[in-house]
Design a protein around this nucleic acid. Sequence first.
DNA 1: AATGATTTCAACCGCATGACC
DNA 2: GGGTCATGCGGTTGAAATCAT
Length: 231
Amino acid sequence: MVRTPCCEKMGSKKGPWTPEEDQILISFIQRFGHGNWRALPKQAGLMRCGKSCRLRWINYLRPDIKRGNFSKDEEETILKLHRVLGNRWSTIAARLPGRTDNEIKNYWHSHLKKRLKQNLISPKQQCDIVQALIHSDHNSNATIHKPVCNSTHQGIQNHPQDTPNFPPKSCNESTDIASENLPGIEGKYETRDFAAMEKMNYENCSNVMEFWYNILMNSGNSIEMQENSGH
DNA sequence: AATGATTTCAACCGCATGACC
DNA sequence: GGGTCATGCGGTTGAAATCAT
């Protein structure tokens, strides 16, 4: 399949945004919103492609962007979530209000990456993180985010791309699992999440906690665990 | 002060996915 | 069912800033 380019290559400006361009984009979005990014630059009178406008808005111009240094709490949150989720920056960003996936990704590569190797956590700690995720989701009515199946029995240390045979070849169809079939879990699953689920057999799990824990541990076996354990 | 090395981060690129026709 | 479009995501790049010598 031949894809058309996301924007006209000819005449589309690249490189750093000027304050004037920023102002045009902000004014336009404040007046008309951003229903169609592809059409936006033409309508707003910007010599940029829609993709560039979208990125500029999301990563820099949005009014709710929190700028400045990361707090200790934010740092810890990123570290913990990364252990569970891997390089799923947008999922991590969703839990840090005002921070963008790009910002977190940059911060990770420039500041936090070095700490990863010397800071592996135990399965018990992973379990704690999963509990925290689930409880925060229950409290906020947010969607439970899906960790990737890339852990080892030593604790999660690999990224998906570092994991051989991941995702499994047998799970290549894009299968959505409706929330009604997965009590306690909202939303759809990505293919690789389904792959993880297929591996550990969801039916063997008695609760959400166990389900996530099994995914994290990349285990085909059920484990004994009670939701809210330790409380 | 000069300069080369390293770090930071905004922006770009290519790919995946879902929606629509 | 297949093609196209629109969007979102993660990886990468490269210019600017900062640091070390």
